[in-house]
C-alpha cells in the first residue's frame, strides 16, 4: 500500500484553499491599517463584506389573518411550532394594539440581524456570530446550548431546540441542544437566489408587504423604499442598527 503523507499539514490546508480559488484571498499590508487585497479567480467568497442584507416590512400591507411568511419559513427550514412554549419559532406574527383607540396592527417579527448584536456579545463560545454581509447566525458546531443569547436578544428571536429531530433539510441542519433563529435563508443567498422564503411567500399572496435586498446598494428596491418613505427600527433606543425595518406601525 502506498501511503505518501498521512498527516494533514498546514500547507495542505493552504493548498486546498488555493485550489478552490474562492478562498484564495491574498492580503498585502502596505502600511499599518492599509491593505491591498486580491481575490483569486473563480467564485468570490459568498459572504460579501460590501453587502448588508436587509428586510423592509410594511405593517400597513400585512393583514392580520395572513401568516404566509411564517408557514413558508417553517416549510423551508423544517421547524414546527405546535404552540408549546418550548417549540421553535424563527418568525412569528405579532399583534400591536393601540390602547386608546383599539386599532390593531399585525407584523412578522424575526431575528432583526443587528449590526451590533447583543447575542454575539454574550456568547461564551463564539458560536453566535455575524457574517460579513450582516447576517447574524449560530454556528451549531460550537454552540453549547447555554441560551445566553436568547436572554440577551431584545426581540425574543431565538429558540432552543429541546427535542431530538430527524429528517432535517440538507441545507438547513438543526439539532437538539443548540439555539437557532432566522438565518435570512443563507442557503438561498449563497446560491444567488437574492431573496428569502418569507419574502417569496409574501409576494405570492399579492400583499407585497416585505422587501428584501442589499441596504448598501443605493439602487436596490429596499434602499430606494427606505430613502423615500419613513421607516422605523424596533427598539431604536438600543442603538443596535437593525437589518430589519418596519413601516406604518
Amino acid at each position: 500500500m502506498n501511503i505518501p503523507d498521512l498527516k494533514l499539514k498546514g500547507a495542505e490546508i493552504h493548498r486546498r484553499d488555493v485550489l478552490k480559488g474562492g478562498a484564495a484571498l491574498a492580503t498585502i499590508t502596505l502600511a499599518p491599517g492599509v491593505t491591498l487585497m486580491a481575490m483569486g479567480n473563480g467564485v468570490a467568497a459568498a459572504a460579501n463584506p460590501g453587502v448588508r442584507w436587509g428586510l423592509l416590512i410594511d405593517a400597513g400591507k400585512c393583514p392580520s389573518d395572513c401568516s404566509a411568511c411564517v408557514t413558508a419559513c417553517s416549510d423551508e427550514h423544517g421547524w414546527e411550532n405546535n404552540g408549546l412554549p418550548t417549540d421553535p419559532q424563527w418568525i412569528r406574527k405579532v399583534t400591536l394594539r393601540d390602547k386608546e383607540t383599539g386599532y390593531e396592527n399585525t407584523l412578522p417579527v424575526m431575528c432583526q440581524h443587528c449590526e451590533n448584536p447583543p447575542c454575539v456579545d454574550v456568547c461564551p463560545t463564539g458560536a453566535s456570530f455575524k457574517r460579513e454581509d450582516g447576517i447574524v447566525l449560530v454556528d451549531r458546531h460550537t454552540c453549547i446550548g447555554c441560551r445566553y443569547c436568547m436572554m440577551a436578544c431584545p426581540f425574543k428571536a431565538r429558540s432552543f431546540l429541546a427535542e431530538s429531530i430527524t429528517d432535517q433539510k440538507p441545507y438547513s441542519p438543526r439539532g437538539k441542544g443548540t439555539v437557532e433563529g432566522c438565518n435570512m435563508c443563507v442557503h438561498k443567498l449563497d446560491r444567488g437566489d437574492g431573496t428569502t422564503a418569507c419574502v417569496e411567500a409574501c409576494k405570492a399572496t399579492g400583499y407585497n408587504a416585505m422587501i428584501f435586498g442589499d441596504m448598501n446598494d443605493p439602487e436596490s428596491d429596499i434602499s430606494k423604499a427606505l430613502a423615500s418613505y419613513p421607516s422605523i427600527e424596533l427598539r431604536a433606543d438600543l442603538g443596535l442598527n437593525l437589518g430589519v425595518r418596519y413601516q406604518n406601525i
Binding site: 478552490k20 474562492g22 478562498a23 467564485v43 467568497a45 459568498a46 459572504a47 456570530f129 458546531h141
Partner: peptide, 14 residues
Amino acid sequence: DRDLTVRDGIRDTD
C-alpha cells in the same frame, strides 16, 4: 470546510 461554509458562506468546497 465546515468553517468555510458556515462562517464565510463558501459552499463550493471540496
